[in-house]
Amino acid sequence: MEIANRSRLGGPVESDIKQVAPLQRTVNTLWAHLLTGADYLALPQRVVLGMDKPMRDIRDDEGNIVDEEEIPLTRFSRDRLLWLSKVGTQIAQYSAADLGNFLRVIEAAVRHIAAQTRTPPHYLLGEMSNIAADALTAAESGLVAKVVDKQIQFGADTREIMRLEALAAGDTARAESLAMGKVLWRDAQFRSEAQYADALTKYKAIGVPDEALWRMIPGVEPEQVEAWIRMRDAQAQASAQAAAAAFAEIGPKPDGGDDDTDEAEDEAA
């Protein structure tokens, strides 16, 4: 079964990367230009000015010059040696090209991709240093909202997939239960344990039941919540029994206990 992304009533589904595919192709093209420039322009280039092409004589078996031919320039690149024999010959140098222009355009394109896809820029650019917690939360708010929206859209399809899996396995009872069930998602936003504890404490202060607070803790399964409820009830029962036993020790005695004491005091007198 297909999980439809950004489904529409009047048209087919649409991919999240469709709108940024042209920008990604632009980034790929710029990277290709950058690598090509790195091959030819990243280092200073030296050139010989005012010199004829290097030639060598061709001799016959008797040592007579019969012709001449060019010396391959690759030999000078390999041997790292060149004689400048002509008067006025000089060496010039071309400076290396600034490839940073490509990087700045690529970075701007990546920022546009991050903005259009609601992806935090530091996820793509790796720029993250001395960022406050509130600023980091604000930077990720767009992505969190996008994930929450996806959870709403994907919930019904995910439930249907699980129902079909139960039918394929022959478990009709579980399939019927899943048809009426609800998909539970984890919190889309990452929070530290201290942040969760602070939030749950504030919810507790306004009267939210313990069971509801336990279900809000990330990673806690419903079975674990049920176990905590049984443990809490058992602890409360044990505390009540202990309090009752202590009250029986220090509380008023049953009827008749005082009369026996009075009789014992009279006999002693």
Rank of each mutant, 00 (worst) to 15 (best):
M1A: 03
I3Y: 03
I3R: 01
N5C: 06
N5W: 05
S7Q: 10
L9K: 15
E14N: 12
D16A: 07
V20A: 01
P22V: 02
A32G: 10
A32N: 11
A32W: 00
G37D: 04
V48C: 05
V48E: 02
G50L: 05
P54G: 08
P54K: 15
D57F: 03
D60C: 04
N64Q: 13
I65R: 09
T74A: 15
F76L: 10
D79L: 14
D79M: 14
L82I: 12
W83T: 13
S85H: 11
V87H: 08
V87Y: 10
G88L: 00
T89M: 07
Q90G: 04
Q90P: 00
S95K: 08
S95G: 12
A96S: 11
A97K: 08
D98N: 15
R104V: 11
V105M: 10
I106K: 05
I106M: 13
E107T: 11
E107L: 01
A108Q: 10
H112S: 15
I113R: 05
I113N: 05
R118S: 13
R118V: 06
P120S: 07
H122T: 06
Y123S: 07
Y123C: 11
L125G: 09
E127C: 03
I131E: 15
T137P: 00
E140A: 14
L143E: 10
A145T: 00
K146S: 14
V147P: 09
V148D: 10
I152E: 14
F154R: 06
D157K: 01
R159V: 04
R159S: 03
R163G: 03
L164G: 01
L164N: 08
L164P: 00
E165C: 05
A169W: 02
G170W: 07
G170E: 02
D171L: 10
T172D: 15
A173W: 04
R174I: 02
A175Q: 08
A175H: 08
E176G: 02
S177L: 13
S177Q: 15
M180V: 06
G181F: 08
V183L: 03
L184F: 04
R186K: 12
Q189R: 15
S192N: 08
E193H: 06
Y196D: 09
D198M: 13
A199Q: 11
A199Y: 05
L200G: 06
K202A: 11
A205V: 03
V208F: 02
V208E: 02
E211Q: 13
L213D: 01
L213K: 07
R215E: 10
R215V: 06
M216K: 12
I217C: 03
P218R: 01
P218S: 04
P222T: 07
Q224F: 02
Q224I: 08
V225R: 04
E226G: 01
R230T: 12
D233R: 09
A240I: 06
Q241L: 10
A246I: 00
F247P: 00
F247R: 15
F247H: 11
A248I: 03
I250C: 08
I250G: 12
I250Y: 07
P252C: 09
D260Q: 05
D262Y: 04
A264G: 03
A268Y: 06
